[in-house]
């Protein structure tokens, strides 16, 4: 009967489709996605390349790459197959990256959300704790934690999460501070929605996009941190990891540089893929920044 019934806007594409379109508009992001896919494939097919143990002796020590097709990328000084280690290392890197990121984001979201939503003394206490963590240099804290906890892969993951939750916490807090005074929060509160639902169902979904983008940075950093630990010989020796490979390759860097360079390239490409993905996610999740 009225104009309002008839002039509904044209239906928009489903959110997921719109998201993909915005993501795909960024060429670099697509490259990042391809690289990330390659790392995933490596991790998935590691069992096919080397079914038993990547750390077993596979050939003569220090075979150069492309000389023996049984070990295409050559072997290190203990005769271990570099290709097999590279593929199994992808598993460890992804595992550490994903788990440490999830864990640190979880801690950060809870701390940041509580601090930003309630403010007052809750905010004061939580933020002073966060600052305490931030003032200690990341890597020093990581070394200390690994020294205390031990250097098995689980503890390394936990330790990386503990040193990297502060940035997402601050980010979530800032988002909450601006979102909690928005009218839609008052509107929901006025409907009788409880504080818990306000935090997690109303505000958090709106606060997440920048955090998701930042997660890609944490992921890249976690992989670097794990590699750095392994490089110093503090990695888990029972797993083939890229950091371990570089750490051991260092001993023969002058004569057999490929032992360190091949895993090094793998790390560079993986970290690059995450940061490109982050760029693309930023375009996809925060379209308003670019639209106008």
């Amino acid at each position: 009967m009225t104009a309002a019934t008839t002039d509904l806007p044209r239906a928009e594409a489903a959110p997921a489709v719109a998201l993909w379109r915005r993501f795909a508009r960024n060429r670099a992001a697509l490259l990042g996605l391809v690289l990330f896919g390659a790392v995933l494939v490596m991790a998935a097919t590691a069992g096919l390349i080397e079914p038993t143990d990547p750390l077993r002796r596979a050939g003569d020590p220090l075979t150069k790459p492309f000389t023996d097709w049984a070990v295409p990328l050559g072997t290190d000084q203990l005769g271990r197959d570099i290709l097999a280690q590279l593929f199994h290392g992808a598993r460890i890197s992804l595992l550490v990256g994903v788990l440490a990121t999830l864990l640190s984001i979880a801690i950060g979201v809870v701390v940041g959300a509580l601090a930003g939503f309630f403010g007052g003394w809750v905010d004061d206490v939580l933020m002073r704790v966060t600052e305490a963590f931030q003032t200690i240099p990341n890597f020093v804290l990581l070394l200390a934690l690994v020294a205390i906890l031990g250097s098995s892969i689980e503890y390394i993951t936990l330790a990386i999460a503990i040193v990297s939750w502060t940035a997402p916490a601050r980010m979530v807090r800032a988002e909450f501070l601006s979102l909690r005074s928005r009218e839609f929060v008052d509107a929901a509160r006025n409907l009788g929605v409880s504080n818990g639902a306000l935090i997690f169902r109303e505000i958090l979904p709106n606060a997440l996009p920048p955090v998701i983008v930042y997660a890609s940075v944490i992921m890249a950093l976690s992989i670097l941190l794990e590699s750095a630990l392994a490089f110093l010989g503090l990695g888990d020796p029972n797993h083939a990891s890229w950091g371990n490979m570089i750490g051991q390759g260092r001993a023969v860097l002058r004569t057999d540089w490929y032992c360190a360079v091949i895993p090094g390239i793998a790390i560079v490409l993986t970290v690059l893929s995450f940061s490109l993905l982050g760029e693309g996610l930023n375009d996809a999740l925060n379209p308003r920044q670019k639209k106008q």
Partner: peptide, 23 residues
């Protein structure tokens, strides 16, 4: 009790964009 009472008094806000959760 307040959460229960809120159903009796409802509000229409000034900025219709800001008062609807965009997600």
């Amino acid at each position: 009790e307040l959460r229960e009472m809120r159903r009796h008094i409802q509000m229409v806000f000034q900025d219709p964009m800001a008062s609807l959760n965009p997600r």
